[in-house]
């Protein structure tokens, strides 16, 4: 039921080659790790994490060595008489262990300042892809204002290019975190934050909301799919010209079910009369890897499970449980939605 992340080869994922997927499955365990950076931003962050760590390790070794020596050398032994020398202090030593940490921290602060300012740069320009990330309870919306694309749960970006993000929230605080590509930035209601990221190589980078945002916070995941520029262009082309026409009789029936149950009052499907804005935009749902805040794999079975029992997957979600929907309606609905290209 829970997603088995990108181990299976999913032919529907346009533009991501078989080779990439195999490469990914090899390092699936580290896909969400800050220790395996896949871009310059996370690389810079790891560099500073490491620099801080080595300086601190040096301090730790000194402290533990002095401590260990004292504990062994100065422990009370049988037959010890009288008092040890009652030393009350030593100004030279005290000044030394005030100044040495200052020097160490000065070493750390210089690259800290540089990186803090470098990572805050705005990436603006004609060729820079801009994405507006909107946190919702409990899914991610990705808008491409220059390209006229609105999607959910997976963010497509061109590999090897800096992508500028604008972060907003529809409800409460969330935090956008793709450890392999970049550290966090919060989405704050009533405020726009910015950050940029870049994937050095095509691949699939899982991310997750990192700021507690309500009952199903732990299910608020997403994927960043970095593609070669040409594959990204193909994805853009496909999204700009969505195919929302049901292709089979069952899918035609599914569209009716979609209308009958009022799904369109919350969900948008581009090129149809369904223009709801509460839930995720479902255009091209059939091309996505995951469902429901990336908490489920996008299979017809899991889609039906989601529609009929969403609250089992994601307690307290706004999505109602359509538990009374008949099996044939469910199958028709999943055929319709999985057919959206």
């Amino acid at each position: 039921m829970k997603r088995r992340l990108h181990l299976g080869v999913r032919a529907r994922l346009a533009g991501v080659t078989l080779l990439t997927m195999l490469a990914l499955s090899a390092c699936a365990q580290h896909a969400q790790s800050a220790l395996h950076p896949a871009g310059p931003v996370s690389q810079a962050e790891l560099g500073l994490m490491g620099f801080g760590f080595w300086i601190m390790l040096g301090v730790f070794v000194v402290v533990v060595a002095v401590l260990g020596y004292s504990l062994v050398r100065f422990r009370e032994r049988r037959g010890d008489q009288g008092l040890p020398p009652q030393v009350e202090g030593n100004h030279r030593l005290e000044i030394a262990w005030t100044l040495i940490p200052i020097v160490l921290l000065a070493l750390l602060i210089v690259p800290t300042f540089r990186a803090t300012f470098a990572l805050a740069q705005q990436q603006r320009g004609p060729g820079v892809v801009q994405v507006t990330v909107v946190g919702h309870q409990w899914w991610w919306e990705f808008d491409y204002p220059q390209l006229g694309i609105v999607t959910a749960d997976e963010m497509h970006i061109p590999a090897g290019e800096r992508v500028q993000l604008t972060l907003r929230s529809a409800d409460v605080l969330h935090s956008f975190w793709v450890p392999a590509l970049a550290g966090k930035e919060d989405t704050v209601p009533g405020q726009s934050n910015t950050m940029y990221l870049e994937a050095a190589r095509p691949g699939l980078y899982p991310g997750q909301c990192a700021e507690f945002c309500g009952v199903s916070h732990s299910e608020m995941r997403f994927d960043v799919i970095a593609q070669t520029p040409s594959a990204f262009a193909a994805w853009v082309q496909a999204r700009q010209h969505p195919d929302s026409t049901p292709a089979t009789a069952q899918a035609v029936q599914g569209e009716k079910v979609f209308a009958q149950y009022g799904c369109g009052s919350c969900h948008t499907i581009d090129g149809t009369q369904f223009q709801g804005k509460v839930g995720p935009n479902l255009s091209g749902l059939g091309t996505r890897l995951t469902l429901a805040g990336a908490s489920l794999q996008n299979t017809p079975k899991d889609l039906r499970l989601w529609v009929s029992d969403a609250h089992k997957i994601m307690p307290s979600t706004v999505m109602p449980n359509f538990s009374t929907m008949s099996s044939s309606d469910l199958h028709a609905l999943s055929a319709y939605l999985e057919g959206l290209k």
Partner: peptide, 18 residues
């Protein structure tokens, strides 16, 4: 030590809330 590491903002972007 981990406190000093957390005080570095770019590193904290990864550490924070983890």
């Amino acid at each position: 030590m981990s406190g000093v590491m957390l005080a570095v903002p770019p590193a904290d972007y990864q550490f924070n809330d983890s």
